[in-house]
C-alpha cells in the first residue's frame, strides 16, 4: 500500500484544462520533488491532493483510503496532509508557538499544556525555540517558513505537501529552510514543488517533471539530470540549471 496514490486526475478551470490525467505515488518516508515551468499546474495538483480544490476526475488515495470519495470526512483527512505554503500563511494573530499548537488544540483536541509542549518541541526541531513568543510580523521570511513547517509537522501528518516553500524568500534565507527540509527527508513522506535544483538533486528520491498538466518524465535524480529519456526534460533541466546554478 502506498502512502499516497494519485490516479489519473483531471482538473479544469472553465474551459482551461490544467491537469490532464496525472498518476504517481509517494511511499512512506519518501521524498518526491515536482519540477516544471510556471503555470503548468503544480499548485493545482497539490490543491487537488488535499481536496482544497477537488479534482474533476480521478482518485486520490491516502493510506489506503479513497479521499476523493464524496462521503469522506475531509477535516479528518486534512489533518494527515501537511501543507506548507509559498507565502507561509501563518496565523497573524498567534505567536510562533500558538501557530504550531493551535491545530493540536482545536483539531486534535489535545490539552493545552501538552499541545504547547509538543509545539515547542517542533519549534526546537526547526531551530526556533527562542522565537516561540514572537508574532509572524516579528519574524523573518525564513523563520516564518520554518514555523510553517513546524505547524505542519506538529500534526504528525502522513505526508507533507510543499508548494515552492522557498520562492518568496531572500536568497540568504533559503538555506535555513532547505536545511530543515533536508533533515526531514527519510523521516516523513514529502511531496515538494520547488525550483531548487541542488536540493532536488541531493535530497529527492525521485524527481517528477511536469508540463502542460501531465508528467513528462520521472525518475531518480541521477537519471533525470544525467540521462533523461525525453529531450524535453533535457532542455528544461539544462535551462534551469543555468538559471539557478548547479550545487
Amino acid at each position: 500500500m502506498h502512502m499516497l496514490e494519485v490516479v489519473d486526475i483531471y482538473k479544469s478551470y472553465g474551459s482551461c484544462e490544467v491537469l490532464k490525467g496525472l498518476s504517481f505515488t509517494v511511499d512512506k518516508d519518501e521524498t518526491k520533488v515536482i519540477i516544471g515551468t510556471s503555470g503548468t499546474g503544480k499548485s493545482t495538483l497539490l490543491k487537488c491532493i488535499n481536496q482544497l480544490d477537488p479534482p474533476d476526475k480521478g482518485e486520490v488515495w491516502l493510506e489506503g483510503e479513497d479521499i476523493t470519495n464524496p462521503s469522506i470526512d475531509l477535516n479528518r483527512i486534512r489533518q494527515k496532509i501537511g501543507f506548507v505554503f509559498q507565502d507561509f500563511n501563518l496565523f497573524n494573530h498567534l505567536t510562533a508557538l500558538q501557530n504550531v499548537s493551535i491545530g493540536l488544540e482545536k483539531v486534535k483536541k489535545i490539552e493545552k499544556e501538552n499541545a504547547r509542549e509538543k509545539a515547542l518541541e517542533e519549534l526546537r526541531r526547526v531551530g526556533l525555540e527562542k522565537q516561540s513568543c514572537q508574532y509572524p510580523a516579528q519574524l523573518s521570511g525564513g523563520q516564518k517558513q520554518r514555523v510553517g513547517i513546524a505547524r505542519a509537522l506538529a500534526m504528525d501528518p502522513a505526508i507533507i505537501l510543499f508548494d515552492e516553500p522557498t520562492s518568496a524568500l531572500d536568497p540568504e534565507l533559503i538555506g535555513d529552510v532547505l536545511d530543515v527540509m533536508k533533515n526531514l527527508a527519510g523521516k516523513v513522506a514529502m511531496l515538494i514543488v520547488t525550483h531548487e535544483m541542488g536540493f532536488a538533486r541531493n535530497v529527492a528520491d525521485e524527481i517528477i517533471f511536469m508540463e502542460g498538466g501531465t508528467i513528462i518524465e520521472s525518475g531518480p535524480p541521477e537519471q533525470m539530470f544525467n540521462n533523461p529519456k525525453k529531450e524535453r526534460t533535457r532542455q528544461f533541466l539544462g535551462r534551469i540549471s543555468t538559471l539557478y546554478g548547479k550545487e
Binding site: N50, L52, N75, R76, I77, R78, Q79, I81, F83, F85, D87, N89, L90, F91, N92, I102, G103, K106, V107, R151, M155
Partner: peptide, 15 residues
C-alpha cells in the same frame, strides 16, 4: 489564505 490555512490543518469552517 488565513481561512485556507485553517482548513488545511483540518479545522472546520466554523472553527
Amino acid at each position: 489564505n488565513q481561512m485556507i490555512a485553517g482548513r488545511t490543518l483540518g479545522m472546520t469552517r466554523f472553527q
